[in-house]
Simulated scan of single mutants.
Amino acid sequence: MRKTQNKKSNVPNTYSQIHIHLVFAVKFRRALILPQWKNRLHMYMTGIIQNNGHKLVQINSMPDHLHILIGYKMHQAIPALVQNLKSESTKWINRMGLSKETFAWQKGYGAFSYCKRDLSYVIRYIQNQELRHKKESFLGEYVKMLESFEVDYNPEYLFNELI
């Protein structure tokens, strides 16, 4: 049995272990996240996650999208967390002048839950994005994720700004 003596839950006798893999894209799936500053973006987003009371497990990005695996705490709704991540990182990228054009995230996101025993797989999956995308597009990857989780989706609306 594992006990924590100094950490208090917001609600007595409420415990959880939830891991969420978040995926979202740059607006219009444009390749705006550059290698020169992507690690700074990861550190900034890590700070947002931690300031919201969650734990970053793994983060990686490609020029057109981002993957984040977090230890999720139930005090905040997932949409509120994603909104905070997107809005604060957008402001930071634009304020720092990191992108040659105005940066924005695409509307929408994917949120997929994993059990603890699958974390090493998900961590490697996120770490190996560069290798994966030598063979597969982001959209192809995302559709596979939706299908493997049996998520109903309309292909017309997959990260499409026209919605």
Rank of each mutant, 00 (worst) to 15 (best):
I70T: 06
G108S: 09
E88L: 15
I70F: 08
S113F: 03
L162Y: 09
R117V: 05
K116E: 15
M43R: 15
F149I: 04
Y121K: 06
H75G: 10
D118V: 04
Y109H: 07
H65F: 08
P155M: 05
P63I: 03
P155H: 06
G110H: 07
H75D: 13
Q106C: 12
L158T: 05
K144G: 02
G108E: 14
V57S: 02
K144S: 15
I123M: 09
L85V: 08
W92C: 03
Y15K: 08
S99N: 13
F28H: 14
E88Q: 13
N10M: 12
S137H: 03
V23A: 11
V143F: 03
H54P: 07
N94E: 07
N51G: 13
H65Q: 02
T4Y: 14
F103Q: 13
D152T: 10
N13P: 06
N13Y: 15
K8Y: 15
Y142F: 14
L22R: 04
P12G: 03
A80G: 05
K134F: 01
L41W: 07
L22K: 04
E161K: 15
L131K: 12
A31M: 09
K116F: 14
T14G: 02
K100N: 15
Q76G: 07
V151A: 08
T14R: 14
E101I: 15
N39C: 04
V23Q: 07
V26H: 08
D64N: 14
V26D: 02
R29D: 00
M145F: 06
W37M: 04
H75I: 08
N52M: 11
E161W: 08
I33W: 03
R132N: 01
Y121A: 02
S148Q: 14
Y15L: 14
M96N: 05
G108N: 11
N94Y: 06
I78D: 12
C115D: 10
Q106P: 09
Y72K: 12
Y15P: 01
Y153W: 10
M43K: 15
G140I: 01
L81R: 08
A31Q: 10
H65T: 00
N84I: 05
N6C: 04
N13W: 10
S9H: 11
Y125V: 00
G97I: 12
R132A: 01
S120F: 02
R40E: 14
